[in-house]
Design a protein around this nucleic acid. Structure first.
Lengths: 370, 370
DNA sequence: TTGAAAGCGCTAACAG
DNA sequence: CTGTTAGCGCTTTCAA
């Protein structure tokens, strides 16, 4: 770990600041207490609190007052134990690689934010969990130990088989990612192939012919994007050059290195299709460092339309994934499954957002943010 | 909600795909079942699983086999109910404004990632919760309803008073943010004033005199950064110009607008100190859109050293906050509080990372990423 | 070394 | 409308 912290100040001791109630940690008031004070039974309180119609309005009011004044809250743990539900769903981020800087891609954060909103709207809690490679069993545990009612996996990465197993066990599960043939689990994701195809076709339309594919093809979504890339080239009668197929992980640093070595390797190319905006941005940096101009010498297109894409310099042309509907859909489908309703995978349409980095001549007006 | 999804495919029905065990949803195996199979009592299983030394090794082995083969997992809900602990901690993101795009700043994500790691290392779960303005009571509920053992708030934003109340109730709570005088709760955060002061001093050292402060002073951390800004100016004998004090929210779009109107308002300045990297990046975009060069015409310094800062164009000079130690510290302090040990606030040192955007002449070598 | 019994705080029949 | 009675699945005395 890094160096010791520098300054230290405010002290938090267990002494109660002023003469406040020195209530012990176990001192929380329980339903029984409320019942006693209201002169009724626990059951009545329970009913009153759950809005049952079988309670005298007067009684309910009396109870409510007590509840408020003592700021009593039902213990969800006990409630869940009894009712068999947890009112919690897990969002799992399967890590792609050993020690990728945690959840670093802004795209994830945007999606996560929307998921969090949707989950909250349902009145559920959200458990966030990072799961290392191979350990899909960890996901099952979350359900088996009664911690959550269902799972949302962000990105199937290399966990495909593990996810299949979960789905086969009929655990409520929805995955953000690619729609694979024959898969047993439900996914929500953008139309990766079509999105990529359109992006690459756009580059070709700008007169580019030697287009680099920058991304990790082992991840299903990226493989589909690669398919789109190939399809677009084929449609234009261009033979894909394996030398322009550059694998890279998602971290900025990795992308930078990959791009650098491509350039230094003497490859010739006039465009780059990157599998994510973060990768695209790193690529641009590498290009500029080597004295290449974007988009004049090399046009670049990314994927995601992360917030920052519009603000980059040059502003990034990219394939937008709609994280807002995506997030909400993930949650809605999951709740449908929890409710026992059958669900099916959804593929979201993508949109090509053309900005400066792909070399389209535009006026002085900056293509704004979303 | 947006338009309807496009394509749909794989169906997830309740029918068990192949001849797998059509185990009902309640069909999970319980401790009692294991006990019966092992020919011992529930208590023994419990002891065996918790590593109690009062169990015959042979018995323990027999139980373990059963547990593994049935992939039995202890129900943490019941366990928690009995033991009074939840093994879960909450990370709360107090929202700054009504509908700021959820948790959009990459800085938060980086910090969150590290917190998640640290929490996982302790074997705890992490509940993610977004709380709207003013509703600090929501945080208390998390503890009162027995959902979590403690709270980590990321950014005090405008929730200061609410946090005070929580601390006064002696709930385990650690806050990422500014260290305010007399505050009752424990914080971890960077030395905002010193960091900002150094950044601004750096700009002054580059010969800049008219330096814009770009950020929201209502947030405690930002106010401290403003203090540092003023201090640096004062040290150089520069009178702060109120016209250069530009408030803006944290979203890229807001920063862009703020900067634009400053420029169009005809203000003259030769540098910008932005309260976050995201803001800095938007500011640069605005400057360039108006034909100003960075750093030649206007030098820019950000705050955070978000991953992308090194990759921006021009690479961003910024004040690095160490999210790795910060995250870990937040968690360690929280666990100390949960264990009943007294804790004190910590102020982390910052580091000024000088890159191209502040106009320092450097060779062809790019200041690399971290 | 093990088992029996008593709850953790709550809900849900089943009787009034 | 309300109270009584059983547990939800686990841990933990207290005895054996």
């Amino acid at each position: 770990m890094a160096d010791k912290p520098a300054i230290a100040a405010t002290t938090h001791s267990d002494a109660t600041p002023d003469g406040a109630q020195p209530r012990a940690k176990t001192g929380a008031v329980k339903m029984d207490d409320i019942a006693r004070m209201a002169g009724v039974s626990k059951s009545t309180v329970s009913r009153a609190l759950s809005g049952s119609p079988l309670v005298n309005e007067e009684t309910r009011a009396r109870i409510q007052v007590l509840v408020d004044s003592h700021s009593y809250r039902v213990d969800t743990r006990a409630q869940g134990l009894r009712k068999g539900r947890t009112h919690t769903i897990a969002v799992v981020i399967p890590l792609l690689h050993e020690h990728d800087q945690p959840i670093s891609d802004p795209f994830f954060l945007e999606l996560l934010g929307h998921i969090a909103d949707a989950v909250a709207d349902h009145g559920y809690d959200l458990l966030l969990s990072k799961i290392g490679p191979g350990r899909a069993s960890g996901m099952a545990d979350l359900v088996d130990t009664g911690r959550v009612d269902g799972l949302i996996a962000i990105g199937q990465s290399t966990a495909h088989l593990g996810l299949e197993r979960l789905a086969d066990r009929n655990l409520p599960l929805v995955v953000w990612g690619a729609q694979l043939p024959e898969q047993h689990y439900v996914t929500v994701g953008s139309d990766n192939k079509a999105g990529a195809e359109r992006a690459v076709a756009h580059l070709i339309a700008q007169g580019r012919r030697r287009i680099v594919f920058l991304g990790q093809r082992t991840v299903p979504e990226m493989r589909l994007r690669h398919d789109g890339y190939v399809a677009a080239l084929a449609a234009a009668g261009i033979e894909p050059d394996p030398a322009l197929d550059v694998p890279t992980r998602f971290a900025s640093a990795a992308a930078l290195t990959a791009m650098r070595s491509l350039i230094c390797g003497g490859a010739t190319f006039d465009a780059v299709f990157a599998c994510s905006d973060v990768i695209a941005i790193s690529a641009i940096r590498a290009l500029q460092d080597q004295g290449l101009r974007v988009p004049e010498d090399v046009a670049v297109v990314g994927y995601d339309d992360v917030q920052m894409a519009a603000f980059y310099n040059p502003a990034l042309t990219t394939v937008r994934q709609d994280t807002a509907t995506g997030g909400r859909l993930l949650v809605d489908l999951l709740f449908a499954q929890i409710a026992g309703r059958p669900t099916r995978s959804v593929m979201l349409p993508t949109e090509l957002v053309v900005r400066a980095s792909s070399g389209v001549v535009s006026g002085t007006t900056t293509p704004g943010p979303r």
